[in-house]
Write a protein that binds this DNA or RNA. Structure first.
Lengths: 333, 333
DNA sequence: CTGAAAGCGCTTACAG
DNA sequence: CTGAAAGCGCTTACAG
């Protein structure tokens, strides 16, 4: 692989000139430019980004650590972040924490050792001394979807509380009194928020959720299935279940089917996180929809603002929306 | 951010010793080790990966360029590659070409400038002079899912031809004579292969696919919807449609529903690429399933073999499997 | 086992 | 506009 020296020799100029041509910075005569470009082309020169970054102290790279790539919510966010980054000439390194705080820390470390210019994180837990330190050090960080209280980094997320309240109202309106929830981990902000919003709204409307009808999953598919199995085994089976994300809803839906039951005749179900196939399922699934693309794009925009202008933008809380389809009906019994 | 020099000073040793301790290579006395570690810890030292790579000429990083992150097939592959890489101490930079050859080239270039140790690519098109050059230069490359003929890099993929043949047999057995296909781009190997396998098998069984019933999509959702709309508008509507990937199947299924038609009563449908929600749709979708996890893991394994041992492993072709569910029935008319 | 020093491939003041 | 040279933060033969 040829280096800047080879190009300089081939073109009969100094490495400084080659550098100026390649980076497009600094004044270079048209004649030199052409000579350098021709030489670089002849040699198949590809600048070494690491050498460049080492010297210039910037990598034009952003890091994104996502809780779970298999979750379509996060792939959509990642996609949006990537687009926004690309548009501004940044590339994106994606890390998948897989809902595991240790893996998350490992990835953060890898990204930081690579000296990414900034970091977008959707933390696996509600606490992270490591992340706190990183922000403390001055690394530009923005949280997306989930955040950690007490860490001074802006957040971009959808607040689902209003929509969850609306869902509860809708369910109660249909006649449901026996509510259940398959929650995400309470150690995760979004997990706790959705759980509390649901339980709180139910309480407020006079249909408190019995403790045994609150099942805690881990936002992954299998846990949704397990939780649903347990709910179906209850002596007093709930008439409606709220599932806190799309992956768990997939598991739960499967479990209902496996038990030979029907939605919504035997049990109503609604999910947080709308995904494209929800409308194809029979019956189409009622869900709370988040503006995924906007979340990702806003996170990228905010991070670049921090990186390039040294500003600290304000957090951005968007709204989520209840999309009523056919998976909730009147309770049968 | 502190450097190796700061740590050396703090510990009262040379930078060489710090380097040896941090990298775990070379003999260092226990006493030194502890002093260095303590100093590094006190300073919150984080080695600069770029400086390290610049010197050591290895990044312990792999690049993966995928045709479309929004396709669950590829996220599953990416996930498997990442796991395998991680296990061996490598990290992964993911690039999303978005089925666009230009974006693909841009990403390859970014990864190469970052001097990744090797590359896994699922190319957007059947040709790529750029990739040919890269392989020529000696960069370790393995193709996954799709490959480019004439480029001397090993491939890991599932050959769907047998399963597609089986599907045709199954459809013909159900009584279908009016077959249609929503194909991927013929410029993409997997697109062409699936199309040819389907058309060929149909021909062989005496039920040739009429030309107007061959619709070419781009493997993305919207194109599946458009193609299905066209098929449904045909004077002689087909009785069964084979869709060449899951994203287009999603679009096609939606379109059938929007037209107020029922699967399989009005039209039968089968898809390439099994995805988790296919069994939840009404009716559950008959599909051809690929061993996604194995594909990704094998690709990573092979690439590491090339990177670490300088060997050139043989291509690996796995089998795909027809999973019969309920989306194909006897033709009604 | 430990250190002094060269060098990886760039960029960037500093001169001219 | 152009070049010589220093230096980014590491690693790695080479001595001792």
């Amino acid at each position: 692989m040829s280096t800047i020296k080879d190009v300089a020799r081939e073109a009969g100029v100094s490495t400084a000139t080659v550098s100026r041509v390649m980076s497009g910075s600094g004044r270079v005569s048209e004649r030199m430019r052409e000579r350098v470009l021709a030489a670089a082309d002849r040699l198949g020169y590809r600048p070494n980004a690491m050498a460049r970054s080492l010297r210039s102290e910037t990598t034009r790279t952003l890091g994104l650590v996502v809780s779970n790539v298999l979750n379509p919510f996060f792939t959509a966010v990642a996609r949006a972040v990537e687009d926004a980054a690309h548009e501004r000439g940044y590339s994106l390194i994606l890390g998948n924490a897989d809902e595991d705080p240790e893996k998350e820390e490992l990835y953060l470390n890898v990204l930081l050792e690579r000296r990414v210019d900034g970091l977008i994180v959707s933390p696996a837990r509600a606490e992270s001394p490591y992340l706190a330190e990183v922000v403390e050090e001055g690394v530009p960080v923005v949280f997306v979807d989930r955040h950690i209280e007490g860490i001074g980094a802006p957040v971009v997320r959808a607040d689902g509380r209003r929509a969850v309240g609306e869902l509860v109202e809708y369910l109660v309106g249909l006649g449901h009194r026996e509510l259940a929830v398959i929650s995400g981990p309470p150690e995760v902000v979004s997990g706790r928020e959705r759980l509390e919003a649901f339980v709180g709204a139910a309480q407020q409307r006079g249909v408190p959720v019995m403790e045994e009808r609150v099942r805690v999953g881990d936002f992954r598919r299998a846990s949704g299935a397990v939780a649903m199995r347990e709910l179906l085994a209850l002596r007093e089976r709930p008439t409606a279940v709220f599932v806190a994300n799309n992956l768990m809803a997939l598991g739960a839906l499967r479990e209902v089917r496996r038990a030979g039951l029907k939605v919504p005749e035997d049990i109503s179900l609604a999910s947080f996180d709308d995904v494209s196939w929800f409308e194809l399922v029979e019956p189409p699934v009622t869900a709370i929809s988040q503006p995924t693309g906007e979340l990702g794009a806003a996170a990228a925009r905010m991070l670049l603002e921090m990186v390039e202008e040294g500003r600290r933008p304000r957090s951005l809380i968007m709204d989520a929306e209840l999309v009523v389809r056919d998976s909730c009906g009147r309770p049968g019994r």
